[in-house]
Nucleic acid binder design. Sequence first.
DNA 1: CTATCATACCTGATATATCAGATATCAGTT
DNA 2: AACTGATATCTGATATATCAGGTATGATAG
Lengths: 235, 235
Amino acid sequence: MEYTVAMREAKAVINVKSLKEQVYEYLRQQFQKHRLQPGTMINMESTAKKLGISKTPLRDALLQLEIEGFVTISPRRGIFVSSLPLHEVKEFYQVIGALENSALLESYPKLGAVGIKKMDTLNRQMQKAIERNDFDLFYEKNLLFHNCFIDPCGNKNLSRIIGNLKKRLYDFPRQRQWIKEWEESSIREHQEIVDFLAAADPAAAALFLRDVHWSYEVQEKYIRKYYEPSERKGV
Amino acid sequence: MEYTVAMREAKAVINVKSLKEQVYEYLRQQFQKHRLQPGTMINMESTAKKLGISKTPLRDALLQLEIEGFVTISPRRGIFVSSLPLHEVKEFYQVIGALENSALLESYPKLGAVGIKKMDTLNRQMQKAIERNDFDLFYEKNLLFHNCFIDPCGNKNLSRIIGNLKKRLYDFPRQRQWIKEWEESSIREHQEIVDFLAAADPAAAALFLRDVHWSYEVQEKYIRKYYEPSERKGV
DNA sequence: CTATCATACCTGATATATCAGATATCAGTT
DNA sequence: AACTGATATCTGATATATCAGGTATGATAG
């Protein structure tokens, strides 16, 4: 596990965040940067020493990460980075599909032409990102596309639940090669959704979102390619 | 805050649960028994002393309860029992409605006549519980009714999300008087769902479940009576 | 009387020490 | 060689001490 000195330097300014929060965010970044691979062990003693803090806030952060599913704490044996098995990907797809379907139906009266246009614009930006092989930008715009109808829903709990599930979906497997075909398929699906909305048919859009875009069965060949633990490439 | 000696006596047998887990469950029971009212402060020093443990496992348990929404930790100021405002009840209703709708559609092929009969039976038991003014039994059967189509779905994450939201819905306001009219209305709605399923129309059942049974707007007059902080009765 | 500053107190956050269960290793017996 | 028990080590869990931010109270100046 590699560390930066960012954690220590942060102590030089007025901290408005508790150590626990800082450690939590640091560890979340480690997940995003794929420095924490599924199965690897996080040693509290050495980690706390390297971060220059006591074990207490580290433990606090790890307890939160356990509740969120990122790590598994085996008492007195070790703390391990969780894996993301396919059946759990499937469960996440079902939950997100149901909730985004509901969010879109709820948001539709508030979207208007401006909101639909924004979704269209974001989808075009996703297309451009693919052409430039800029997959980080693709995913950023992808999240923003979905947030166009999640945020106006105004349901913080719904947003929180979806957000947590997406963190797990997107952080864990990103060491894998992007599947360009999947990204292009996503863009076409987004366009279908936009077209339904532009044609004033939110019910069709919400159904397509749930039963195609967030359907494990429809997306299965891509999901397997992306999440299945076979012939790992070296990082 | 009152305590039993159950926590201390538990130390006399072989503990397979960590202190943190035991404290967590103890505090959850306090919520269920309405010993912890919204707004009240939980003092860590005195609580730990009364439980006969150090502050560390108590803090661990409280961190989990905060993530689950039961308490709010104001750093260095105090830990307070959360309230459940109406807008959050509304958010929970939307999330649960969307997820149970999805679960019912997924479970239907596995339900069969046996599963539908079981739901019918549980609903009749709910009716009997109302006639006997046994509201604890009513709620137990109510949860089991819904679990008839949540469990066969086999989606642990979906169950966990719904379960956590229901804990908040059911634990917080139970000091209030039962609304018999609402319970009887719920039983009629359950019967509608059972009838749709018996008529091999899962889509209608799932829609009714989401858009009537878990509709905040439809249930609003009962929800307000039950959750609105007006003319509190002494405990 | 009001405003400002200093001090005391309260509370959760963090650091450090110790404990306790799980696992690995070693020694003795059959 | 296989089995059993003892011991050592590892690791997270817990206990205790101390810290640090927030609030209340008292003293002083204008």
